[in-house]
């Protein structure tokens, strides 16, 4: 397997329509916020170069359309994703309840090799509207634990508007994804050896 020259992390942002996916991406990449974003049609992405553990990493962040009927488009965008950011709106309980379906849909469509340990991160956006909060923090904590008891997903409460927690959240997901990627890199050559071994075996068996 050819060694990757630069480290590229593909991160997908998922969540219901209007939870603030575009805003989060733009806040993280451009440090800008606007109330006036157009609804995302299909998907769009931005890239950002960051340094993690003295390593230069290019993050390719994919922003997707939130409306349910666009989920079928996912295949093209989800392919090769290294991490997934699930976003919900703390003022909108429905967007929280949909997290399950977003996660399942993603795993089904992206088909990662190790779905159990695929790096997810959960963001509860719009904490600037604390007084309208409808999803308590405990609930998301429980949800994260329920999904994976040994290694619960990490979650952040963020505000794209006030840039609260955005930087940390993306840093975290980058770290997790990188960690996972390194594990895989170790794992991949082994698989190659395994495969070749199997190939020789089978050829030997044939003879």
């Amino acid at each position: 397997m050819a060694h990757r020259k630069k480290v590229l992390l593909k991160v997908i942002i998922l969540g219901d329509s209007g939870v603030g996916k575009t805003s989060l991406m733009n806040q993280y990449v451009n440090q800008k916020f606007s109330n006036q974003y157009k609804a995302t049609i299909g998907a769009d992405f931005l890239t950002k170069e960051i340094t993690i553990d003295e390593k230069l990493v290019t993050m390719q962040i994919w922003d997707t359309a939130g409306q349910e009927r666009f989920q079928s488009l996912g295949v093209a965008f989800y392919r090769g994703a290294d991490a997934c950011v699930l976003v919900y709106d703390i003022t909108n309980p429905i967007s929280f309840e949909k997290l399950d379906s977003w996660r399942d849909e993603f795993l089904a469509q992206a088909g990662p090799r190790d779905p159990e340990n695929f790096p997810f991160i959960v963001l509860g956006n719009k904490v600037d509207q604390e007084n309208e909060r409808r999803v308590p923090t405990q609930k998301i904590e429980l949800w994260c634990k329920a999904k994976n008891a040994q290694q619960p997903m990490s979650f952040f409460e963020t505000s794209a508007k006030e840039a609260t927690g955005v930087e940390e959240a993306f840093q975290t997901i980058a770290k997790i994804a990188l960690q996972k990627g390194q594990d895989d890199d170790i794992f991949v050559p082994a698989a190659t050896i395994d495969l070749s071994g199997a190939a020789t075996k089978s050829s030997g068996g044939c003879c």
Partner: peptide, 12 residues
């Protein structure tokens, strides 16, 4: 939700 996001500025 989308009506107010129709006239807006495009992303990013």
């Amino acid at each position: 939700a989308d009506v107010s996001r129709t006239f807006g500025r495009s992303a990013v």
